[in-house]
Structures are given as structure tokens and as C-alpha cells.
Design a protein around this nucleic acid. Structure first.
Lengths: 341, 341
DNA sequence: GGCGGATGTGGTATCGATACCATACCAACC
DNA sequence: GGTTGGTATGGTATCGATACCACATCCGCC
């Protein structure tokens, strides 16, 4: 559309009868400006509906005041909560956040990283997928980065204590007398799944039990994954409890159980990681991460690195996970209890 | 750290023994380049890990090849689906998408619009909140814009046929014999809620019934809203069917009914707008919008306007809504049927 | 009376790329 | 043999802002 030349700082300067640099000072509140000049400039800005050109600004100042946040699955409410933490920490420091959803797709991630590097992001918060290629690319360009949620070597990481969370949940089930516990995991390659599985194994072993490998399933970190795994397990076995390693898997589990006419906890017990805010009053016993805090901490660290008050390093910041005991598990009474493998 | 000067097009040019403009041509695949020169330049790019500066590029070319997508609630899976449509349509045309979540918060929206205008977005896709201030701001800057999901005058709009969807759902309930239908709406100010309510009213009136105003509730477009409204309705009345005007409200309804020990559809019927992918096999009868198509169409229109092949106007593109009859409603048998008000 | 610092404003170069114009070669063709 | 047009490359100005350096007042104070 007949896009005429946009109004620039020169137009404003001319109208206010000052030099462009003076307009710049008014906008940025830098240096001294007499009240009278400031008023004239502000009036001109107002009258011309002047919008500063951020590209030019950033090109010259070498700062975009923008960080990128690359999350793995925006439909999982865990990530919007993390995002909120990131945004709040950032806006306190006048930094903007560009949100990108990689869908656990390495190509999308690579593509976003390339584009965002060109756009001169001041820093990156990212959830790695399959390897560390993108993280290394960013590091090579000397752009600050903090990895979120998933442990990776040789880079700053902020994550939750998946291992302990799974350990606690398993201990809780063991104390209720459960022995046949089915683990419904995410993709094997994802480190959080491995860590949660490790926590489960540790709890079992410490209690003197050998986990039943036939009850360990892998699937997607999605409701369909939980649904499919539940159907799979129950086709061939009858565990007394199910352990969903994330909230989306738990949602699928609930759907499947509902379809099978099995009630929680009367017919089967269930524990999971994370709440699903879509159920306003969840009855699930879960190990809840602190997504908002996770985002906040990761962003704060990144911003500290960007402004130079902290040096990049290979810190591994691990946040605690909260065990929330609710009503999705029942104790196994000895009479009904099965013998351990 | 110690952020040395980044490598520029000049560095690449020097290394390849050509002029900067030639490097530019290789990158952009514009003009003629001999195979030999191209190879030398590409080698230099590779060796120096050169990343072009997008700010500079965009400043000069006056194009960022980026559009902004401002959605109202990213936690509602409807929006990620729209986003996917937008991204697919955009990436076909080599345009990037900046995703922002306004949380139905007008201040956030205003803030994002200001920042993104400075960043010289090529266009905007936006879901308006309370009024049209931001839309007008964008139009004043002569930046192309398409409004998504919510009707607004004097601007291009792409949306679903909320009115008809609600009409169809209501007709379906009426045919099953339901007369006491509780409408669980979103915020009154939001046009989609008004339209769905209007569709409901039209169906009732055409069938010769007067809607019971005591069964019309307003709340948030969130699970908590649905939960609260359900509790409210059932405190004082006993409708035979509930109509949740969006999927999140439906989720809250299900939670509340579960807590009250009421089963769907045996104890009460339920219809809603949109599916919730978190339930892999939904049993809900819904009027399903086509979010992916919505995003696709809106983005395509915007991109057409940006590249000049279509002129901005005040089109109102309305997509159909699909009635998916499943198992969340039972007919009212005459004996049990209540008399109409 | 001169000096230092606070106050207020401007000029010019520059950020890193591309637009635009120019040049030069070579082959084909009438 | 000169014209035409495709092929291939370069020089310079410029996008819109800020960095950096300069300069001019004015005030207070030793």
C-alpha cells in the first residue's frame, strides 16, 4: 500500500527545531535536556506519531534488548508458566522476549536459532532437542545462552530435580504397599525421562525391589502417548499403580482409564509429574515442578550474563520439586497385595 | 563474554578476495555469480562462521520478513493450532512469525504492539481485546494488519462462524428434547461470546421458546470460569443440559461435575465449542472451529496485503464450524421432560 | 578573576548491510 | 564491425539511529 517514507528522527527534529541527537536524548532520557526543549520535542513526537526505528537503534547500539525463549511444546501448560517467569524477570529489566515453539522438532529448532542469531538476540534460553548442535552454534557466536529444563554439559543450565521428584513419588507408592508400578515415560532420548526413570529405579532398589522391566514404557510427551501406553500396559499386565512421568502423559492415562471404565484411585493408583491447570481442582498426587521459578531463575541468570555482572560458565542450577499428596492413590491392603517379582 | 567485533560481510569479502556486494549477492542469490566466485565466498562464509546481520539487512531493505501474531491465551490449545496454520502459511513464503501471548491483558497487548512496531514488523495478526486502540495504532503507521477470531469494523477480519455454531448446537439439544439449557459464557465484552449467545437465542426463539435468563452465566474463558459457573448454576437450578461456549470452560465444567458426582451424559448433557486435544478421544459433542485453517487463511491474506497483491480493506472472512455429534448428550424422554418456561 | 563542574546542544562518523549505478567482458547476430 | 544483451563484479550513497567528541553557558568558589 502506497507506503510512504515513515517519519524519522529527522522529521521530528526539524519540527521541534532541534538536532536529531537531541530528539534521541529525549527518547532515551540520556544527557541533560531543558524542560522547554523536551516539551517541544515531545509535542513533535506526538503530532507526527513518531515511532523510533528499532532496527536502526539496535544496529548502532549493538543491543536489541531482546532475548529468545525456545520451548519444546507450548501446548503443555508447563511452558506457558515458565514463559511467564521469563517475561516477568525480563520486563523488570526492560528486556523483551521472543517466544518460539519448537514442537520437539530439531529442524524447527535449528531454523529458529539461525533466524534469531541473525536478528541479533542478546541471549538465548532454550530447551535442547537431540544433541547440542544449536547450543554450540550459539556459543560459537559468543551469544549468551542458558539451557532450560534439560541437563547438558559445558553450558549453564537451570532445571528441576527430576531424579528426586521421581524418587519421592516412588517412595510414596512403595510406602502405600505398591510393588507393581508401571512407568509411563516420555521418549527415551529425553534426559528428563531418563532422570525420572533413574529416580524410580533408585527408590525401588533402595527398598530392596527389582523394577519389573516389562512395566516400563516409552512414548511421546503427549496425551496420545499416555493413552497408548496405558492401553498397552493394561493389555498384558495389571499393575497396582501407574507413574506418568509428565502431566500430558497423565492426561492421556486418565482418558484411557476412563474409557476402560477403571476409576482412580479405587481401581488403580496414579501419580505424575506436574499439575494440569486445566483441571481446576486436581485430585492427582504429583511431584510439582516450579515452572514460574524455573523461568524466572533462568532469565535472571541469562540477563546477568548479558549485562556482564556474571560470567558465563557451566553452572547446573537445580530447583526442588514439591511432592503434593492428594487423592489419586490408595494403599494396597495385604490381602490384595501381589507378591513382588 | 569479551564480545569482540562480530564478523561482517567485509571480513568475508576480504577473505574471499571480492567486494562486499558480491558476498551479499551470494547470500541472497541475486544477480549473476560465477560458480568459482560463489565457491570461494561460500568457503569464506563457512570458515568464518559468518552470520549476516539481520538488523542491517532489514534497515536497508525496509523489510524484516517477519509478521507478529498476538494471541489472547496461549494455554488454550486452540491458539497453538492457529499458530501452526500461520507458521505454515508464512514459512511457505519465507516469512517468520513472532508469537506473543497477551493473556487477555490490554496493557500487555499495547506494550507488544509498541515494541513490535519499533521492530518494523511487516504485518500484524492480532486478537483484539477491549476496543480497537491497538488496531488503529497499527493502521495509522500504515502497517498491514488482519484481525483474527474477533469481529471488528474497518479492518480485515478472519474468524469462525460462532453464531451458526451455537445455533446448530442449540438446535441439536432442542431436538433431543432439552429445554432447560444453561449457557456458560465467557466474558460478556468478548464478541465471540456475544455471537454464540446470539446463536443460542435465535435457535430457542425460532423453536418457539424463551431462553431462561437465569440460566445464562458469564465468566472467564478458562477452566476456573467453567468450574465456578457450573457450581453456580447447580446451586440454584437443575438444567438438563449445559452449553459451554468454549473448550476451556467445558474443561472446568467437567471438573466440577466430576466433583459433584454427576456423570455426562447420564445425569446431565453437555455441548461445547472446540475440542480439547488433551482428551485424546473426546466424547464431547462440539461445534469445532478450524483453527489451523483460521491461521492459514489469516496469514495468507496478510501476506498478500504485504506483498501488494491484495489491497487492505474491510473484508470479513467467516469460516464454517463443524458440528461433531458424539456422546455427551442424551435425549429427554417425555416422562422426565420438564415444561418449558 | 579564573577554574571546574554541571547543564544543554550540535556535528560527524559509524553500525552492517543493500540500492542503484556503472563498468567490462564475451558471444551472437545482422 | 558495431550493436545487443547476457554474464559478472565493483563503487558509493544510504537506511535511521547513536557514539563520540566538541562547544557554549552559567554558577559557585577559592
Amino acid at each position: 500500500m502506497a507506503k510512504k517514507r515513515a517519519t524519522t528522527i529527522h522529521d521530528v527534529a526539524r519540527r521541534a527545531g532541534v538536532a536529531p541527537i537531541t530528539v534521541s536524548r529525549v527518547i532515551n532520557n540520556s544527557s541533560y535536556i531543558s524542560a522547554e526543549t523536551r516539551a517541544r520535542v515531545e509535542a513533535a513526537i506526538e503530532e507526527l506519531h513518531y515511532v523510533p526505528n528499532g532496527l536502526s537503534r539496535s544496529l548502532r547500539s549493538k543491543k536489541t534488548n531482546t532475548i529468545a525463549l525456545l520451548v519444546s511444546d507450548i501446548t503443555n501448560p508447563f511452558w506457558p508458566a515458565v514463559t511467564r517467569g521469563v517475561e516477568d524477570a525480563s520486563s523488570e529489566r526492560a528486556v523483551n522476549v521472543v517466544l518460539c515453539n519448537t514442537d520437539e522438532n530439531p529442524e524447527k529448532l535449528e531454523n529458529y536459532v539461525n533466524v534469531l542469531l541473525q536478528r541479533q538476540m542478546d541471549g538465548f534460553l532454550l530447551v535442547p532437542i537431540q544433541g547440542d548442535a544449536e547450543v554450540r552454534t550459539i556459543q560459537r557466536q559468543q551469544v549468551p545462552i542458558v539451557v532450560v529444563d534439560r541437563l547438558l554439559p559445558e553450558v549453564d543450565v537451570v532445571r528441576s530435580d527430576s531424579e528426586s521428584g521421581a524418587y519421592e513419588l516412588t517412595r510414596y507408592l512403595l510406602e502405600l504397599g505398591h510393588r507393581e508400578i508401571a512407568m509411563l515415560c516420555g521418549p527415551f532420548e529425553i534426559i528428563t525421562t531418563q532422570q525420572r526413570l533413574a529416580g524410580f529405579r533408585r527408590a525401588m532398589q533402595e527398598a530392596g525391589f527389582v523394577p519389573n522391566e516389562n512395566l516400563i514404557f516409552f512414548g511421546q510427551y503427549r496425551p496420545e502417548g499416555g493413552y497408548a501406553m496405558t492401553m498397552d500396559v493394561l493389555k498384558s499386565a495389571r499393575p497396582t499403580a501407574l507413574f506418568a512421568v509428565n502431566n500430558f502423559i497423565a492426561a492421556g492415562v486418565l482418558s484411557a482409564l476412563d474409557e476402560l471404565g477403571l476409576r482412580v484411585p479405587e481401581d488403580i493408583s496414579l501419580v505424575a509429574f506436574d499439575d494440569l491447570p486445566i483441571f481446576p481442582r486436581s485430585f492427582l498426587t504429583v511431584a510439582a515442578q516450579r515452572p514460574y521459578e524455573l523461568g524466572w531463575r533462568a532469565a535472571s541468570l541469562l540477563l546477568d550474563i548479558i549485562d556482564g555482572s556474571t560470567k558465563p560458565a557451566t553452572r547446573d542450577t537445580v530447583l526442588p520439586v514439591d511432592l503434593l499428596v492428594r487423592d489419586s492413590c490408595l494403599p494396597i491392603v495385604p490381602a490384595e497385595g501381589k507378591l513382588t517379582t
